[in-house]
């Protein structure tokens, strides 16, 4: 039998809660629709992927017997799987190469655009093109550029004297396929870095450079002791953002190689997707997704640390 509820029972919490709601009602009315939408399409899936990662959930078996709880078995299997470790290694290699090259290229282009030479305006619009093209469109375009027989890249390389490259199949060898995708990713992401850095460069007072020049500082010293220290925070943030973007890159790799040849460019994103939608092992794929999530969280925590430092 349930005891009838009395008003006194509610005294402890209800008024405080209700008062808060009344006080901030208007604020919540503005914010809640979006928060509910985000909760439904992000929080719930996140919760559910963790649950599924502890289950045996095979898409074909699910029709007959439903998921069964199997504890950490999916994780144990993954950690014993050499394919996973290979994929993790490739992912780290791919991400690191993309980030380092993107930041260096972005910084170089930003420094170039910061010089006042006739034509810098044209150039600053031109560099936006790689960024504007849809990821899938530019991946398809680069696949055509990399074409072994009629691709323009091999033609240009033979013109430059690399006769051996005349019909080299870039996407058919593991190491060159990985680098081919790295180049596409860097090509697409350097404009963002360059534009961000250029904005920061232009806010550095010219007097700093003039003073340094009077003191006889060489261009290299001006870069090393004035520009880079002033850009340090932004460079840090951009590095972390790039790391996260390149870690989750999927489209370019999928269009260019589909993880091939023979699984040679199977980065974690594609490895997870294949487990879920090619082998239909949803439980195992969910565990992989959770592992990816933990890796991204580690990077994000680092990002938040920088973000909070800048807020203060």
């Amino acid at each position: 039998m349930q005891k009838p509820m009395r008003m006194e029972d509610l005294k402890g919490w209800e008024p405080a809660f209700w008062l808060a709601w009344k006080k901030y009602r208007l604020a919540y009315a503005f914010v809640l629709p979006a928060l509910i939408a985000i909760g439904l399409v992000i929080l719930y899936p996140l919760f559910s992927v963790v649950v599924t990662s502890f289950e045996r959930y095979h898409l074909l078996e699910i029709l007959t017997k439903g998921p069964t709880y199997i504890g950490f078995a999916n994780y144990v299997e993954i950690l014993k799987d050499p394919e996973f470790w290979y994929s993790l290694g490739i992912t780290m290699y791919f991400t690191a190469a993309c980030v380092i090259l993107t930041i260096l290229a972005g910084l170089a282009v930003a420094l170039l655009l910061n010089l006042e030479f006739p034509g810098h305006k044209v150039l600053s619009v031109a560099i936006l093109i790689p960024w504007v093209m849809p990821r899938v469109a530019s991946s398809i375009l680069w696949k055509w550029i990399y074409d072994d027989q009629f691709g323009i890249l091999n033609y240009l390389l033979t013109l430059l004297g690399f006769k051996g490259m005349a019909s080299y199949a870039w996407l058919a060898h593991t190491s060159s396929a990985l680098w081919a995708v790295i180049i596409v990713v860097v090509w697409q992401s350097f404009p963002f870095i360059a534009v961000s850095l250029l904005a920061a460069l232009q806010s550095i007072p010219a007097e700093l450079y003039e003073a340094a020049m009077i003191d006889g500082a060489s261009p290299w010293q001006r870069l090393r002791f004035i520009t880079l220290p002033l850009l340090r925070n932004l460079l840090g943030v951009l590095t972390v953002i790039s790391t996260i973007w390149d870690f989750k890159a999927f489209d370019q790799m999928w269009v260019l190689t589909e993880g091939g040849p023979a699984g040679g460019t199977m980065i974690l994103g594609i490895h997870t997707w294949m487990n879920a939608f090619a082998y239909l092992r949803m439980g195992r794929a969910s565990a992989l997704a959770v592992i990816m999530l933990l890796l991204v969280t580690a990077i994000t925590l680092f990002y938040l640390k920088i973000f909070n430092r800048e807020e203060e």
């Binding site: 992927v49 994103g269 939608f277 969910s286 999530l293 991204v296």
Partner: peptide, 20 residues
Amino acid sequence: FILCIQMLPSVVIIIPLFIV
């Protein structure tokens, strides 16, 4: 939290969304 969501790889939420 909203800022952090931007860090989420789509592959992570695509599995539960697919099931739903």
